[in-house]
Design a protein around this nucleic acid. Structure first.
Lengths: 201, 201
DNA sequence: CTCGATCGGCACGATCCGTGCCGATAGGTG
DNA sequence: CACCTATCGGCACGGATCGTGCCGATCGAG
């Protein structure tokens, strides 16, 4: 009652950090299969209560664990060349999404979210929307500098760009390689770029 | 021994059909949560062996169940107006993906696939690639009639189109409504359409 | 009619869930 | 320094599902 609702209690903060780290380690080693609250508790040498006191479900724990490692990969550069900046970020994100620990944890969250619409909303708002917004910011700057046409619906373009990457890395079996990113950017720049438009006829 | 290896045995074929139907009914009623082999067996009044004899896992059963109801929604019309044909099909697919029984079953397959790369490959090859191919066929025809520019990489465009729809219906919480489809098609036609190109400057 | 394959039903050990209770301990309080 | 309270690790429980094994019943082919 006396503490703020967000901050953990006494010596719990260190345990919380450790539990998140153990969760990521476990995900990197055994993948989504074998990721369970019991497994995390065993691995950490911890009673299950210690986990349930912090997170209401495995999904909540996974979301927090994902937050620790995902945000760091989310910063577009701004070199003045929007295509090059998007390309670099997409390749970096694609690699992160397909490598441990982000890949397995992200898959685990996706899987849990299919059975829980509340979690799906949280996932969407806390990660997907954030990524889209970051992309939207970058291409909006490009629009203001004249790299992209003024009448483009960039909000939807950001969703198409990010959605295609997520589709390829989480649902498809194809890798997010250079040809994929280049193909995606070809379409995006053909639609909304202002320079070197290749017109037929 | 006397029958072909693919066709089920004696009176099993009828049971197989019934089990697929029960699975779809169950998915429509209780959603992904509560979809289990035990539940299907209980609902069908069947021993679990009868299910395990036909499918090695819940995921395999779900894939077969999905095949029964998904293929029917997969035929692009060809009215000569590629944008209108894509629009109609995308709206139809979007509705199907978010309604029972296809929605819950698709979600269940997605969830299972996150923990099983073999299943993920099967899902990709049996459904995602099929949908992309169907889309690619339609836009390839449009390219040959001059509705789309000749140098467009349509194979990748088909993935972007389908991927965005899957992203929105399965990962995002936004609906696949008319504005979403129109936004997607705006970008696609802006990139590769040959008529009524709006140029800035 | 005979016989073998499939059937429904039941039970098992295993795993994980979420919860409850225990005694131990660590940390802030006086 | 001693106390006290919240958190700790550990254990156990009932419930659910998994995948498997065994039973006797039943159906269909020969």
């Amino acid at each position: 009652m006396t503490d703020t609702p967000a901050t953990p209690r006494r010596r719990g903060a260190a345990r919380t950090e450790e539990l998140l780290r153990v969760t990521l380690d476990l995900a990197a080693e055994v993948g989504y299969a074998g990721l369970s609250i019991e497994a995390v508790a065993r691995r950490a040498g911890v009673g299950k209560h210690t986990i349930y006191r912090r997170w209401p479900s495995m999904a909540a724990l996974l979301l927090d664990a994902l937050s620790r490692v995902w945000a760091s990969d989310l910063d577009y550069r701004d070199t003045g060349d929007v295509r090059a900046d998007l390309r670099e970020q997409f390749l970096r994100s694609g690699l992160a999404l397909s490598s441990p620990p982000i890949g397995p944890v992200y898959r685990a969250v996706i899987a849990e979210a299919q059975a829980d619409s509340t979690l799906r909303a949280t996932l969407h708002e806390r990660f997907l929307v954030t990524v889209e917004q970051s992309t939207l910011d970058r291409i909006t700057r490009a629009q203001s500098t004249g790299e992209l046409v003024a009448e483009a619906d960039l909000e939807f373009a950001a969703e198409v760009l990010c959605g295609t990457l997520y589709y390829r890395s989480l649902l498809s079996t194809r890798p997010i390689d250079e040809s994929a990113v280049d193909g995606l950017l070809d379409m995006f720049m053909a639609a909304y770029g202002t320079s070197t438009r290749t017109r037929s006829t």
